[in-house]
Nucleic acid binder design. Sequence first.
DNA 1: CTTTCTGCAAACGATTTGCAGCAGC
DNA 2: GCTGCTGCAAATCGTTTGCAGAAAG
Lengths: 144, 144
Amino acid sequence: MRDDLHHTAAGRLKDAKQRYTENRRALVDILAAAARPVPVDDILEQDRSLPQSSVYRNLAVLEQARVVRRVHGSDEFARYELAEDLSEHHHHLVCSNCGKVEDFEAPPGLERTVRNVMDVAERAEGFYANGHRLDLIGLCRDCA
Amino acid sequence: MRDDLHHTAAGRLKDAKQRYTENRRALVDILAAAARPVPVDDILEQDRSLPQSSVYRNLAVLEQARVVRRVHGSDEFARYELAEDLSEHHHHLVCSNCGKVEDFEAPPGLERTVRNVMDVAERAEGFYANGHRLDLIGLCRDCA
DNA sequence: CTTTCTGCAAACGATTTGCAGCAGC
DNA sequence: GCTGCTGCAAATCGTTTGCAGAAAG
């Protein structure tokens, strides 16, 4: 499973004419292990051997190769998670107090409804949606 | 209608022990006139008499007073819109190419579905949602 | 070998803040 | 007057970039 992930990541990097180096593999491992989008600072704490600039640069490369995705919380800090098709489809619980972001799996009916909304957007506004984000904003357990 | 808006804004600022000055009124007017969240740069262009620092400072004050709300697009620029209860409830079409954000009114069935999801989040995760954002990500008419 | 990656340190740029003067109450 | 607001210019800080050396292929 984890091997499969690395295999896919390597393939996508190769398509983008990029190498799958130690540092990049480490980033993918950290993101795969997390149950939430990870802020850059957390990554640096989890692996002190990674220099800040390399982390930023490699996350940008991985994002372009569609291996990871950047996520916005309620604060200014960049957070990253694995690309949608490398993990389960899910949504986010965003704490408006502390900025934390948790993954959340929505009940099945929702996806169908959202699909309809995407069709409406296309017909009504000429907007070609290829994805969506549904974030619930509120107070996490710690801040409640 | 517009007067009512200013009246409400003034009241909320008073509650926060803030004054409703010319500059702040101008910001509310600009946001009320837009059909989309407005980036700070656009505000500065629309009213050259507003100094950058005042715009940032006043938007922060207005946000704390719950008159405006900060919105995240797909780029790094801060965008603002009127608080949810001062405008119509709506969602956003976020262009993943140019970062632009458009307002979009979703069909009624969606809201009911989302309400259910919020209940699920509370029971399953102990997360007290008080709002949501559903953004469709894709290509706007110009970028398609 | 050639191309890409790394890590340091310096640069960048959107946003924030200190401060002296001005305006609201 | 006292308190809060303004606008300038300087500081802040997450993020980006230039460059010389190391590593991948």
